[in-house]
């Protein structure tokens, strides 16, 4: 049980934040806190210092960059992202995945950067971010880095984010705009539940090679893109729904846990990929 004092600091710039992080061991960045505070209460994390990022100018902004990319600041709550006109118009799959997380109050607090850094295999927003080939922008003690989301997740709770780095923004490339499809998830109840599994199938408007996206959540140590299933859909479209489903079943590596068995998850990956692929028309 953590009984040592907890220090709360507010950073006004990313430089100040990273400096505050470097000063003491066991410092944690705080955005929405909807994962971190629960982990603290459960004794899984025992921070000595929390560094609040929400007062850093720019981290709460959504903006279109010169190259047409959409940058979503690390401290923007999921509810704001899902309601943003640019997101809804250009990246509707992201809005859909944001709305799959938690409840209204949770979405008004939780951030997408937090969802990504928490690196849960069941992270709903990761499905859309992987499909849209988003990039993670971070500032760290050794300078700024840009990390593609593909390869960002290393396992439950593990990412390639350098120690001490804080995510400043998630960036959706302009070329990913207009990708449409659907996100299907199964859970034990309808309201507020972690996904037992999730399946996103999307397609870029241009079509052709590389147009399809198939992403699975909660069926592998990380959210998982399935290139084999995508390639099948690229070649034959919805006609290949059943084969794509089979490819996704083969690619997933689910486990048994309190939310479902590995066997059920694998079977449902097939069912949901087939459905989502068929829905592309």
């Amino acid at each position: 049980m953590n009984v040592r004092p907890l220090e709360f600091r507010t950073a006004r710039s990313t430089a100040e934040a990273t400096a505050l992080w470097a000063e003491v061991p066991d410092a944690y960045y705080l955005a929405g806190g909807t994962d971190l505070l629960i982990q603290m209460r459960l004794g899984r994390r025992s921070p000595a210092r929390l560094i609040d990022l929400k007062r850093i100018p720019g981290l709460s902004a959504i903006e279109v960059r010169g190259d047409g990319a959409l940058s979503i600041g690390a401290c923007v709550p999921l509810g704001v992202i899902a309601a943003h006109p640019e997101v809804r118009a250009r990246y509707p799959l992201l809005a859909e995945c944001c709305l799959a997380v938690g409840s209204y109050p949770v979405r008004n607090r939780a951030t997408m950067a937090g969802n990504v850094c928490n690196a849960s295999p069941a992270a709903d927003t990761a499905a859309a971010l992987l499909a849209l080939e988003a990039a993670v922008e971070a500032s760290g003690p050794n300078g700024d880095v840009v990390l593609p989301l593909a390869g960002f997740f290393q396992g439950p709770g593990k990412t390639v984010l350098p120690a001490g780095a804080l995510v400043t923004a998630l960036v959706l490339p302009a070329k990913a705009a207009g990708c449409r499809g659907s996100f299907h998830r199964l859970s034990r109840r309808r309201g507020v539940d972690l996904a037992t599994l999730g399946v996103l199938v999307g397609r870029h408007a241009a079509g052709g090679a590389g147009a399809h996206r198939v992403v699975l959540t909660a069926v592998a140590p990380t959210p998982l893109r399935v290139p084999a299933a995508e390639a099948l859909l690229d070649r034959q479209g919805a006609a290949a729904a059943a084969q794509a489903a089979e490819a996704a079943r083969a690619a997933c590596k689910p486990i048994d846990d309190v939310r479902g068995t590995a066997q059920y998850r694998r079977e449902m990956v097939g069912v949901l990929v087939a459905r989502a692929a068929a829905a592309l028309g």
């Binding site: 109840r189 309808r190 309201g191 507020v192 972690l194 309190v258």
Partner: peptide
């Protein structure tokens, strides 16, 4: 206990 929390012990919400 494996699900001694509201994360993994579910009761109906208004949506259910």
């Amino acid at each position: 206990p494996r699900n001694a929390s509201l994360t993994d012990y579910k009761i109906p919400t208004t949506e259910d």
